[in-house]
């Protein structure tokens, strides 16, 4: 999670007593300037160059709209699944003790550790008609590969850890006396969860869900394997940006990329806002 939350702590009373200010500042600024800022500025400048009218034309062109719609819909589907699965996993991993729990916990990191191209390859082969999953789904008439479902599954796989890992620590720190009180007062387990536990973990749950959604929108490696990448049908927005680049349509690429960055930034602001609410709530009054 963001380090920004920690920065408010005083960094030591004495200023610049320790050596290395100039050196580290020089190194960091050079690095940040060349590696991060310059390319991002290039995108912004290119975007500004296009002009609002042309920008709007590019973004609302049928193929762009179709790509954006697919990306957002698939990411939403993936996020709904991840929200439910993440909540279940966080609950099971924190509240229950059973053999293999630590292994199950370690499994949650696999989607982060596994390169996305590897995940995409494996999921595509599993869900293709003669793959292990595809064979089971084909007779029922469900096809996953080259459909929006495939896109959603790939997105969902790569963002699995977010909800689990944000809810888990909060659930661990949760004071259980309130639940016990609720149970003593005759609440059913479900009522206790819905009225006592869920409200307490809601902010972290929303943070995790927002990050998972943002990550799904930006996922590329895993998706392009399984999507089939048919224009107007299963082409995600970031791929369209790359295709525009390959056609030397830099304006088209910049406009689509800026749109995606804008969406990501809005989601980042939302998640930071949720996170600040979350940290405030966790400080005992």
């Amino acid at each position: 999670m963001s380090v920004a939350a920690v920065i408010d702590a005083p960094a030591g009373r004495q200023r610049r007593v320790l050596p290395g200010f100039g050196l580290t500042m020089g190194l960091v600024l050079t690095y940040v300037g060349v590696i991060v800022l310059l390319p991002v500025i290039a995108l912004v400048l290119k975007g500004a160059e296009i002009g609002p009218v042309r920008f709007w034309e590019i973004v609302t062109a049928p193929r762009t709209l179709a790509a954006l719609r697919l990306t957002i819909t698939a990411a939403a589907l993936a996020t709904v699944f991840n929200a439910l699965y993440g909540l279940l996993m966080a609950w099971v991993l924190v509240r229950y003790r059973f053999p293999g729990r630590r292994l199950l916990d370690a499994m949650m990191d696999i989607p982060f550790a596994l390169p996305t191209a590897v995940a995409g390859l494996s999921l595509t082969a599993l869900f293709s008609e003669n793959g292990w999953y595809g064979q089971l789904l084909a007779p029922v008439g469900i096809s996953v590969v080259y459909t929006i479902w495939g896109v959603a599954i790939a997105m969902s796989f790569t963002s699995i850890p977010f909800v689990v890992r944000t809810v888990q620590p909060i659930l661990e720190d949760l004071d259980q006396s309130q639940e016990e009180a609720a149970r003593t007062l005759g609440a059913t387990p479900f009522q206790t969860f819905a009225r006592v536990i869920f409200p307490a973990i809601l902010p972290s749950f929303l943070v995790g869900t927002t990050i998972a959604f943002a990550r799904s929108l930006g996922e590329f490696g895993a998706v392009i394997f399984i999507a089939g990448n048919l224009p107007m049908k299963t082409e995600i927005a970031s791929l369209l940006a790359v295709i525009r680049l390959e056609e030397y349509d830099y304006n088209g690429a910049a406009a689509i990329a800026l749109t995606l960055v804008a969406i990501a930034m809005v989601l980042l602001v939302v998640s930071n806002w949720l996170q600040s609410r979350l940290t405030r709530r966790r400080v005992p009054a």
């Binding site: 963001s2 380090v3 920004a4 960091v28 940040v32 991060v36 800022l37 310059l38 390319p39 991002v40 290039a42 995108l43 400048l45 290119k46 943002a214 990550r215 929108l217 930006g218 996922e219 590329f220 970031s238 791929l239 940006a241 790359v242 680049l245 030397y248 830099y250 690429a253 910049a254 990329a257 995606l260 960055v261 990501a264 930034m265 980042l268």
Partner: peptide
């Protein structure tokens, strides 16, 4: 700014690099 790359999807980072260093780039 140091943490910015975590919020920009890698594919967009690639696009930024091409817009900077590409033939018609900055």
């Amino acid at each position: 700014i140091i943490e910015l790359p975590f919020s920009i999807s890698p594919i967009i980072a690639g696009v930024c690099y091409l817009l900077l260093y590409g033939r018609q780039g900055l």
